[in-house]
Nucleic acid binder design. Structure first.
Lengths: 331, 331
DNA sequence: CTGAAAGCGCTTACAG
DNA sequence: CTGAAAGCGCTTACAG
């Protein structure tokens, strides 16, 4: 079976390789009737360009790399699903990496195999910064998901953590909660920092003194929520617990049930993220919904636009979050 | 800044491009002292091969495509995490696709961008078969996760659904359950078929007549578990519900709680998969644990071995499952 | 508007 | 054991 290359197409339609290339990439000026003939030949032969050759000779590889802390948490899987949808629509492929050894990342850039990067940092390392600088120097487009851990002039897409937490504070005021426990994510998490910041702003706006909030450190894991709750209850009591993500809220709820506290009668619990299980817990979890799928979709869509010569992303886009009221708050 | 190509390395160490290539790919015979000098130059220059060029000229692209029904269910995310671990270890990249339009898949093959495929089918379409044939014809290595929906001579890695369900049947016998409801996955799911098959075998072995099991169709979604339970309870009663996956078990549990049935006092519930939430439910869910992470890791490891000239996978590997006993069964 | 030719950065027979 | 050369399948100035 003969391999269908651009030369086969060229021969079939009677034009040169260069012209076929122009038609396929819609680049340069081609006479409409010529384009038509070329397209017909492409169609009939079922020609598919070899992307390796295209990339090697200066074109796009139609591949976007997405670098994540993990691929298991729903936060990221929804992001991937959205990214995948956008990529598929435009005929792009996604390379997904979680264990970002320095070596592997440099290979990705130097190997010229990707046109753009979608990045999500967990904390910040000096290598992350070096990596960003390398991308900049090479003029490889990238978008950061979440607040960039470095300076502010990186193109990024964020969710409105502050706004979401403010809404929750307002809801707390409505319930009249007095004694509040807030369980944070890991220290370096900017999401967590923004959530508590927005929450306190919201409380102030409602006339509640944020100084009354007890803050305990967690790490976003279910186990840390469980432990934080146990430690806290050894010496204190609260009307409500605001966990900085749903997984920790799950841990908290589990601990309360283990020791026989009723939710929400004895203690209310709320989370952040709106993971799928929130709706199925008993009681169902009041939380803040964030559009991770939309973010993935938007980010890849923008990246493709940039790759294909469109305008670059304005430096940051913020997507709004929304309160998802269920039963664990007492509603 | 000069681009570091193989020619730069060649010049630096005083050997030819061909020799440098041989050293880097550990192919052909090279004098040890030469190899040493070449490696030193590679090191000092921080040279990384351009993978596009390598692939174009007949080498590996060091990329494996993984095709999945979705990237959201834990079943698949664990698989990806395992695959990613193996890929990272060997310096390979993973392209992940969920929306498998015909066009996109053919591009992937014809575009020569991947060395191998890891496939997971949901049901079976005629295109899937055509796709497999195309891979075979092109001699592109692939491994199927789960029982192949076609003939049996495809390299595949399976979990022991039958064995896991048998173990569960044995556990049911220990509890002395009489009236049993089994909720299946979608009709075309071979996993679901094997699970109920193994379950019935197990019951027979324990002297329980499998004909007593009421079977209701679900589709693996939480919602379908919820609905199946509602419909069932309109006319019948059971001691225990075996949902063919944990998500449906979650739906079942939710429905029982909604109508005030106590689990496991009024009715026991068990699942299959051991998703993360199983441990955190109230009561915690008894289920069958399957090694999806290990499967991803094993599959990619094998694929890389094949790519790099090793022996092909024996036609099928079956990994065992294990009973995870918690509280929802009454234990 | 179209084509001939160079070049992208590798691998791999083929010679020696 | 090593090198010169062809070739992988495209894109892109450059000419016309």
């Amino acid at each position: 079976m003969q391999k269908i290359t651009i030369d086969v197409v060229a021969e079939k339609c009677g034009f040169s390789r260069a012209t076929v290339s122009r038609v396929i990439n819609r680049e340069g000026i081609v006479k409409p009737s010529t384009a038509e003939k070329v397209e017909k030949a492409v169609q009939e032969l079922g020609y598919t360009p070899n992307l390796m050759a295209r990339a090697l000779s200066g074109g796009n590889s139609r591949t976007i790399a997405i670098l994540l802390p993990d691929v298991v948490r729903e936060y990221y899987t929804a992001l991937i699903a959205g990214a995948d949808a956008a990529a598929e629509e435009k005929g792009y492929n996604l390379i997904i990496k979680t264990r970002n050894t320095k070596r592997a990342l440099i290979d990705l850039i130097e190997g010229r195999r990707v046109d753009a990067f979608l990045l999500r940092f967990a904390g910040s390392s000096s290598f992350d910064l070096e990596f960003l600088n390398r991308l900049k120097k090479r003029k490889i487009p990238y978008i950061i998901i979440g607040k960039p851990p470095f300076s502010d002039d990186h193109p990024s897409i964020l969710i409105d953590n502050i706004g979401g937490a403010r809404l929750m504070a307002k809801h707390y005021a409505m319930h009249g909660f007095q004694r509040i426990l807030f369980i944070t994510g890991p220290e370096e998490s900017l999401d967590s920092q923004d959530r508590i910041y927005g929450f306190k702003i919201g409380l102030s706006e409602q006339g509640i003194d944020p100084a009354n909030v007890v803050v305990v450190r967690g790490d976003f894991s279910r186990q840390s929520g469980y432990e934080a709750m146990r430690t806290f209850l050894e010496t204190e009591r609260a009307d409500v617990v605001f966990a900085a993500n749903d997984h920790m809220a799950l841990g908290v709820m589990r601990y309360c049930q283990d020791i026989g506290m009723r939710v929400p009668e004895d203690i209310a619990i709320t989370g952040f993220d709106d993971n799928f299980f929130a709706e199925y817990l008993q009681p169902s979890l009041t939380t803040v919904q964030q559009p991770m799928h939309a973010i993935g979709d938007l980010a890849v869509g923008n990246l493709i636009q940039i790759i294909e010569g469109g305008r670059a992303l304005e430096s940051r886009i913020i997507l709004s979050t929304k309160l998802q009221i269920r039963h664990s708050c007492g509603c």
